[in-house]
């Protein structure tokens, strides 16, 4: 049956594409190198589909209707959002959705205890498009977008996100015919618009990164209490990494990098996992 051939994690700070001039040449070089590494691994894995885990940034969802987990199931999805086009320096693109996987996962979820929300009109905002533009610049890899609520409290628990990841892994291995790469788009801490914006919580970031390096999913869940998530800031992207860890079954990464971008408010954490290379 299907297999998870690659795990990827990468940041989506819009400054990466919109304001590269704000970075020092050293930081830019490190970021180019790390993204280049991920891009190479993705090309080598040659997946049939890229499942993208991230939190919508209040583009598709608001307090009038705020799903915890939402799958994009339309034939195609388009991004970036019109509001982002003037700044992001990413051309608007329409990507094919692997609807076999998107709808298969939706139905598998209903049967196995995840009542996904789903959308025929999911817009791919920068949380999807920044890493896509750097990892698949031709935008020709079929995707499945999965929103995991990090920005509209209350958010799901870390344990729930890990379990979601496990269920995604079960679906791919037992019901999908093909080779899937999974991308977690997000960093750890980042208080966009909040009082802590601009000061990077390196201590928290590195504690999580150590757990990632050791593949300690249960420790990540224990650490990601509501208090820790509040400390991490508004986007709660730790939950996205924990979901991916659930998909990968506590596999250790084959590559990690932590790049501290003081001039653009968050650090960039990147990683790859290669399940078939032990």
């Amino acid at each position: 049956m299907g297999k998870i051939s690659l795990g990827l994690a990468a940041p989506h700070n819009p400054n990466i594409t919109s304001r590269p001039d704000k970075m020092s040449p050293e930081v830019q070089g490190k970021l180019d190198s790390a993204f280049g590494h991920l891009k190479t691994r993705l090309s080598e894995a040659s997946p049939d589909c890229l499942l993208i885990l991230t939190s919508d940034h209040v583009t598709n969802f608001f307090y009038n209707n705020a799903p915890m987990f939402c799958l994009g199931i339309s034939d195609t999805c388009t991004g970036p959002a019109p509001k982002e086009l003037s700044e992001l320096r990413i051309a608007r693109a329409t990507l094919k959705v692997d609807t076999t996987m998107a709808k298969g996962l939706l139905n598998y979820g209903i049967e196995s205890g995840i009542d996904f929300s789903y959308s025929q009109e999911m817009i791919l905002d920068h949380a999807f498009m920044v890493p896509l533009s750097l990892l698949t610049p031709r935008m020709d890899l079929p995707i499945v977008p999965l929103h995991i609520n990090g920005m509209l409290p209350p958010r799901p628990t870390a344990a729930r996100c890990y379990r979601l990841g496990q269920q995604i892994g079960d679906y791919v291995r037992n019901h999908y015919k093909g080779n899937v790469a999974v991308l977690a788009s997000g960093s750890f801490s980042g208080d966009i618009g909040g009082p802590k914006m601009g000061s990077i919580d390196t201590a928290l970031d590195l504690e999580f990164l150590d757990l990632v390096k050791d593949g300690k999913g249960q420790e990540m869940i224990k650490k990601a209490t509501a208090e820790t998530l509040d400390r991490a800031g508004v986007a709660n992207e730790i939950l996205i990494w924990i979901t991916l860890q659930g998909v990968l079954g506590d596999l250790r990464p084959s590559f990690t990098d932590y790049i501290c971008g003081k001039d653009w408010s968050t650090a960039a954490t990147l990683a790859t996992w290669q399940p078939n290379i032990r």
Partner: peptide, 15 residues
């Protein structure tokens, strides 16, 4: 607005 509890990400975009 922040102290009233406005969503900080949306508030930043407004600013």
């Amino acid at each position: 607005l922040y102290r009233m509890g406005a969503h900080s990400f949306l508030l930043w975009q407004f600013a």
